[in-house]
Design a binder for these strands. Structure first.
Lengths: 337, 337
DNA sequence: TTGTATGCGTTATCAT
DNA sequence: ATGATAACGCATACAA
């Protein structure tokens, strides 16, 4: 039988109200002696409050939901780790949900999280969105969107990456390395990151005096599998082509297929990824990529979410973090300019 | 204001008791007409029960805890994914915890999970254990141990891998490929998997008529970093050496350092990993490894845990899964035998 | 400074 | 077949 506040009250010869105050540190008008006495008994009896009962009356569960599209993508794993660490530091627990990039599954999870009365949700949304359906869902708890876009009513803040500048830097790097045709192997254009990267890609081409050709924009999913298949779909020569990829998984798949076809990377073909997941360092040739502060994104998203919950959110609830170009072997050839 | 069972009762002109019965499908002695009437109103009003209140009285939260050592290791990521999928299918939510292979952190998480009244815990324990301290913790909910060993009182079942046979197969493969000196680069020997693999390693050597030399057993952590440093510590020639590694991360680090020192893998040196994480396919040379059914381990652990919760656990609560040797480039040389 | 009483939303027991 | 009511463990408004 678990010990309750009543037991403590009886043992201490005080009321449950007094014990409750002491447990919650609202001891402004409780005498030092009773505080001492009760604390001692609490310690002795190893009493811990029942969270469920507490939540019933406070309407707060100290619990958050975390929804990410793909736990197998190290980028999201890092986000999750950052989120978990910060939540833990602030005394929150996290319900963990994997949407598999499926909006319906995301809906289901959101409902289930609301039923379980989480205080808030941190969401990296599924790729394909549906503005109308999302708007219809009645969400009365705050959501912080991270990385991906979403349209729920509950969204009260977001942590993003400067994808536009990141893409610009990556494409520009390929151009400066003398690759002639620059191909963008994009993730789903429904996602804001992809849209922004496309913008950056176009701007970089434009600034370099290159023409933008739709033939050079290939759209697929954020999966390695897509990267592996991509060259099969191209009907032009891959001589001196620079590939700018939507993420590292795509780039890794692409490099794999290029090697199998005996293309030389980086001599003939350059490849740039996005995310800088740790595998990118390990493959051969190692991958030039745009490093995202993924752990930080998770960490700060939870921080923002809890700040919103505490209503200390006078500051703006939108934050944009920077990327950094990490140059490795996959583009490291002598500049032909 | 959220709608409650009382509201439904009032609208239907029945008691909350009746509504409760219908909500929980205990309708043996409720008339069809009231069932129909109440169900209709529930649907109209979009009523969902308050889980906290329900849990207060049923003492069940339909919530589980999942503790793993390292979310950044794809092996555990896969376990987590399997766990989440099965929990979701069975109507449970998962609190997700990362112990960073730190026993103290594991303790803290277990306490916090118990406070949050999870129904059970699935645990892949931190590497270093402390039998005495573990035994002292009073745990009144079932724990299923997966992969790693642990000594808590609450442990009611386990899902393991046949590490002994796996190691035997891996070492035997190296021997059959003609590598002369077989070195075991082990993870922490406090973990049962490492102990079992050591047993398998020794048995394979013995069966091949080789002597067991402690100089050939290097112990470290399950991290890539350890693998990268390992050859620095060896003072014998690496000519024709076969490395059997405690996991793939170690093997990947080892291969990286071997390449940097211009050793030829697999011609001069063979490397076998353990886990077969997906990166092993992508590095160069690709890694021969022992595939573990990691997703399945997570999936079945949750299944077992919930079975124990439901008291349908007449079957034995211990299961041992098999490994499979996946041969790739890192050992693929012409047999010198 | 302390205690009493009520309510949070549900399930379960026992009458009716 | 249905309903009244206690109980779960706590926080809080208000009274003392």
């Amino acid at each position: 039988m678990k010990i309750t506040i009543k037991d403590i009250a009886k043992l201490a010869g005080v009321s449950t109200a007094t014990v409750s105050k002491i447990v919650n540190n609202k001891i402004d008008d409780v005498s030092d002696t009773t505080v001492y006495k009760v604390r001692k008994i609490i310690k002795e009896k190893n009493y811990t409050p029942n969270y469920l009962a507490r939540s019933m009356v406070t309407k707060k569960t100290k619990t958050l939901g975390l929804i990410i599209p793909d736990i197998r993508n190290p980028f999201f794993t890092d986000i999750a780790k950052g989120a978990e660490d910060r939540a833990n530091e602030l005394g929150y627990s996290i319900f963990f949900c994997n949407s598999d990039d499926d909006l319906d599954k995301e809906f289901t999870y959101i409902n289930s999280l609301i039923e379980k009365q989480v205080d808030g949700i941190m969401l990296a949304g599924a790729a394909k969105r549906d503005r109308d359906r999302e708007r219809k869902i009645n969400i009365n708890i705050p959501i912080v969107a991270v990385d991906r876009n979403a349209y729920y009513k509950g969204i009260k803040g977001s942590i993003e990456i400067d994808n536009y500048t990141g893409a610009y830097k990556g494409v520009n790097h390929l151009i400066s390395k003398g690759y002639e045709r620059i191909v963008f192997v994009s993730g789903p254009l429904e996602t804001k990151p992809s849209m922004e990267r496309l913008r950056g890609y176009k701007k970089a081409l434009k600034d370099a005096g290159k023409i933008i050709d739709n033939e050079n924009i290939i759209v697929g999913t954020y999966e390695r599998n897509f990267g592996e298949k991509v060259i099969e779909t191209l009907d032009y020569s891959l001589k001196n082509v620079g590939f700018f990829c939507g993420n590292d998984l795509i780039a890794i798949g692409l490099i794999k297929s290029l090697k199998e076809k005996n293309y030389k990377v980086p001599e003939e073909i350059g490849v740039v990824g996005f995310d800088d997941i740790y595998i990118s360092l390990l493959i051969s040739p190692s991958l030039t990529s745009l490093r995202q502060p993924s752990y930080k994104m998770g960490y700060e998203s939870i921080e923002l979410l809890i700040k919103i919950l505490d209503n200390n959110n006078e500051e703006k609830n939108k934050k944009m973090l920077k990327t950094r170009l990490i140059i490795r072997e996959s583009t490291n050839r002598i500049n032909l300019d």
